[in-house]
């Protein structure tokens, strides 16, 4: 049997499939289907310094092969997460990643400082949420701002630091390089692509926030392209996501350059996706006489 273990910034994952932030909550619900250790890791719902109630409904719209969401970072706040969710999650035998979002440098730094003294395994900096006015994306769209926020948080963050990038930019490669230069340990990408759907009968956007973030199969080719470009340009590992639905998608994303994966939208239809994807990868590796999943990463043969 092939080895599915991967190592990102010194943290060992039992398999490369991580639950994507915002789609698995704090793990408890999917833990009612199977042991959470079927995931190599869990990236928790984006948390902020203070609790947030999020956007009014509707927060979701279906799209061809995908969906839009505008939850608006509803969450109980960093302190609540540390007190109520973290210790339970740590017992589930999976890597625990805290995903943090803020309005200001201070917000991010304070959260990183608080989380650094807990036993959370990694911190993922969400500077890419498209659904709140000041939810971090203002830090995520230029090289200067990504560099500056990475540098600021780095000083307070004693945990491996992942920077989660927005695809809603013109040059994602330069942005990734800025994050690497200022001390990021890994890149995760992509967050959702901003989109919109309108009800033709009442001419209202379906989502109350007007716009939402596109995820699911529809974004997969965009994600593969971006992961491939970034992985070629940086030395730190890239965690690839965006529309992964099948084990074939997972293998493709790793060949493109991902060292690990996150899956989100697919879970809504098939909660068992992590089990199926891992089984599929494992079988693919065995059939191709590949001993470790890490051997797939970045093996794309570009023309």
């Amino acid at each position: 049997m092939a080895d599915l273990k991967v190592n990102i910034a010194g943290v060992e994952f039992q398999n490369p499939v991580i639950g994507a932030s915002g789609t698995v909550g704090f793990g408890r619900e999917y833990g009612e289907f199977y042991p959470l250790s079927v995931f190599g890791g869990i990236s928790c719902k984006g948390i902020t310094l203070q609790p947030r109630q999020g956007n009014p409904a509707p927060r979701i719209a279906e799209t061809p092969s995908g969906m839009l969401n505008a939850v608006g970072l509803q969450n109980p706040g960093v302190d609540h997460f540390i007190q109520n969710d973290l210790s339970w999650l740590k017992e589930q035998n999976t890597v625990v990643i805290a995903n943090i979002a803020g309005n200001t440098y201070e917000d991010y730094c304070q959260m990183a400082e608080k989380l650094s003294v807990t036993d959370v395994d990694m911190i993922e900096l969400n500077i890419s949420c498209p659904n709140v006015k000041s939810g971090g994306v203002q830090f995520g769209t230029s090289c200067e701002s990504v560099g500056a926020i990475t540098k600021a948080v780095r000083q307070f963050c004693k945990k491996p630091l992942i920077i989660k990038l927005s695809p809603n930019v013109t040059d994602i490669v330069s942005i990734a390089k800025s994050a690497e230069y200022e001390g990021a340990d890994a890149i995760s990408m992509i967050n959702t692509l901003t989109g919109m759907r309108i009800d033709i009968h009442n001419r209202r956007p379906i989502i109350r926030n007007n716009t939402g973030g596109l995820s699911g199969s529809a974004v997969f080719p965009v994600a593969v392209r971006m992961v491939c470009q970034v992985a070629q340009a940086v030395k730190i590992p890239v965690i690839g996501m965006g529309g992964i639905t099948t084990w074939q998608d997972a293998v493709e994303m790793m060949i493109a350059g991902a060292s690990a994966l996150q899956i989100g939208t697919v879970l809504f239809k098939d909660p068992y996706a992590p089990v199926k994807i891992n089984e599929g990868i494992s079988q693919f590796l065995d059939e191709n006489n590949i001993s470790s999943v890490t051997e797939l990463t970045g093996t794309v043969k570009l023309w």
Partner: peptide, 13 residues
């Protein structure tokens, strides 16, 4: 309108 149906994705507010 719903996504996960089980309380994880928070869209059905």
């Amino acid at each position: 309108r719903m996504g996960c149906g089980i309380g994880a994705c928070l869209v059905c507010a």
